[in-house]
């Protein structure tokens, strides 16, 4: 499993793997926001936390179809399915690799972009924390979506349509934590719920992903 993780990481860092693409997209979304709503810091600072969460979520979405599609095309997925590690483990490792190359960099980049959007001072730490807790869920859910659509020729758009509704709870609680943090309000409840969602998806969704992969390989 470690070997698989290493291989996935190496593949995604290599040229054309999509690493960095998500970060660039995140930067662009944040840059474009003031163009759309105006440069006034009074407008920007209350919505900064939400925009950053939404931007991170959309950036995550970009690289989802790469999680499984390449392996499916060259037959590596079939080898993995017959390998001694269970397919559920493969799905988890794939999600982990996706998080390490997308979710983690996005989390680390978010505070810097927060400066651009006049995020209020106390918000930085909570924004980072909420993204750190929430983005793994995004990767795991995304892997499930990728597993559903892996057999399709042009699954990209369909993948977004399927995955985005599934992102609703994570987005709500994650952005709520960041927003309340920025305004200095109590935030234990959404934080706990966000953590709960991440843990629950991490524990349960790999089974659904593995089932979907099996169906697609049949």
């Amino acid at each position: 499993m470690i070997a698989l993780l290493k291989r996935d990481l190496a593949l995604s860092v290599r040229a054309g793997g999509g690493f960095g693409l998500a970060l660039a997209f995140f930067l662009i979304v944040v840059t474009l926001t003031p163009f759309a709503v105006g440069p006034d810091s009074g407008t920007l600072s209350p919505i900064a936390a939400g925009i950053l969460w939404l931007g991170a979520l959309l950036s995550c979405l970009l690289s989802l179809d790469r999680i499984l599609a390449l392996d499916f095309e060259d037959g590596a997925l079939e080898l993995l399915a017959t390998a001694p590690i269970p397919l559920e483990g493969v799905a988890t490792v794939k999600a982990l690799a996706h998080w390490l190359t997308t979710g983690l960099p996005l989390t680390l980049a978010a505070p810097a972009l927060g400066v651009l959007l006049n995020l209020p001072e106390p918000g930085f730490k909570w924004l980072t924390l909420s993204l750190a807790i929430g983005t793994p869920a995004l990767s795991v859910i995304g892997t499930f979506g990728a597993a559903l659509t892996v057999g399709l020729k042009r699954g990209g758009l369909l993948l977004s349509l399927i995955v985005l509704p599934l992102y609703v709870p994570t987005l709500i609680f994650g952005a709520e934590v960041a927003r309340r943090g920025a305004q200095g309000m109590p935030l234990e409840t959404p934080l706990a719920l966000l953590g709960g969602i991440t843990l629950a998806t991490l524990a349960l969704l790999p089974f659904a992903s593995a089932a979907a992969i099996r169906i697609n390989l049949r």
């Binding site: 509704p165 599934l166 609703v168 709870p169 709500i172 609680f173 409840t189 959404p190 719920l193 969602i197």
Partner: peptide, 15 residues
Amino acid sequence: VGSVFAVLSRYALVF
């Protein structure tokens, strides 16, 4: 899977 997430979303939205 969608059913679980739909219920989750429902409670998330109330919150």
